[in-house]
Design a protein around this nucleic acid. Structure first.
Lengths: 235, 235
DNA sequence: GTCTATATCTTGATAGAC
DNA sequence: GTCTATCAAGATATAGAC
């Protein structure tokens, strides 16, 4: 592939950018940004060294002055994406009000926010990780596992405290994580939502999915007359 | 790539198979099954014609007696995957008890079931669709849109009938669909769940996410004493 | 339908001048 | 750091015998 084979369809049109402060200066940073766009659109194996160099405005040989191999470009993006998400999740937990409900909401807001702010990075980090050798994928996988456990811990704590009522915390954590992950695939400036609207709505979804008890610490009455668990805003 | 570069990591170990009655007889069918495994594991661009032929046990030239190009192999798998899902969703709606809640549960069970029964096919159909030219991706995209609308209609109907209480039906449908879609990435025989357990649990998640009112047609009492909406089984 | 053999092009990566 | 030039291997696909 030298000229695009067809118009991009894998993504909404979104800005090609990396989180603040992590783009290396100079040519190295420009290579990463080109790779971010091309890997997201065509995949790692669907992008050639020459595509990458051409998009960056340099000769293909110049790439090797900045990265020892094509795979290392991907490895850097994948690690960067997982690190950004994990950092945001940790930060969200630190800043969240106490209690599993507020913490779960904060985690989901942070996850959705990360995937909405940097959909290209999230897509590359998740969908192209498999193209890395195990050694170079390992650091990202470790971060992913840690991120996963943040959510699982909050869910289990909430169940133990009677704040959540969920059939299976592990499956619930998986389902909630899946919701947020997919945001990278469809969110963009063409959508009729802001990133905060999506993040807040998804946080509400997560609480409902987890059967969060809204305001009643005392046990529910024996008669099974129940209702929705969170305020609704109609859509 | 001729010999595997490293052990597969993109998937759990799952059987390589297509839905009943859709595998063509003879070599053509064997090619499709090889492609199913290789495209799922390494991606379309990560799999060469020779890989495909080698895995099938034929010469690379023989492939062209069955498919005019590599892309057509992928196109068939992608369409097949989308068709299978759409057919199952329609069937689920037909067989479901009346009412949006039962219908939503049936749709989610069908979606999760499809992704758990044929994770390789679901993964290829979703994750490799972008490698197709627009003309050959179009039929699958049309099916996907129809499947999406099945869920959206049920959700909107449920909201209109007061059975669901959801902030935004479109986002809810997206979130629910995302949950089920990801199942293909992690479910397998190594998991401590059966496909039905996952399907049923996810159906419950969807109902809770949608704020399904369980059994009370009469309005809830004014005091905001609410509780979970479905039985729990502790996990 | 299947093979051997091959054409043609693209790939990732390197050598060496500036 | 960046370039021109190039290598060796791998890519998709075809020709033609059996």
């Amino acid at each position: 592939m030298t000229t695009p084979r067809w118009e991009p369809r894998r993504l909404s049109a979104v800005a090609v950018e990396l989180p603040e402060g992590v783009t290396p200066p100079g040519t190295r940073g420009r290579i990463l940004l080109s790779a971010l766009r091309l890997f997201a659109e065509y995949g790692f194996h669907g992008t050639s060294i020459r595509d990458l160099a051409g998009a960056t405005g340099i000769n293909s040989a110049t790439l090797y002055a900045h990265f020892p191999a094509k795979e290392h470009v991907l490895a850097e993006l994948v690690l960067l994406g997982h690190a950004e998400l994990h950092q945001r999740l940790q930060q969200a937990l630190v800043e969240a009000p106490p209690g599993p409900a507020a913490q779960l909401a904060a985690l989901v807001r942070a996850q959705v926010g990360a995937h909405a702010d940097f959909p290209l990075l999230a897509l590359v980090a998740n969908a192209e990780l498999h193209a890395l050798s195990p050694e170079r994928a390992a650091p990202a996988l470790a971060l992913r596992e840690q991120s996963r456990e943040l959510g699982l811990r909050v869910l289990r704590l909430g169940v133990a405290q009677g704040v959540f009522r969920v059939a299976d915390p592990l499956l619930a954590a998986t389902a909630i994580g899946s919701m947020g992950m997919q945001v990278a695939h469809w969110f963009g400036p063409d959508q009729p939502y802001t990133r905060d609207q999506v993040a807040d709505t998804y946080a509400g979804f997560a609480l409902q999915l987890a059967g969060a008890v809204v305001a009643a610490p005392e046990p529910a009455p024996k008669t099974a007359r129940t209702s929705g668990t969170t305020p609704v805003k109609k859509g």
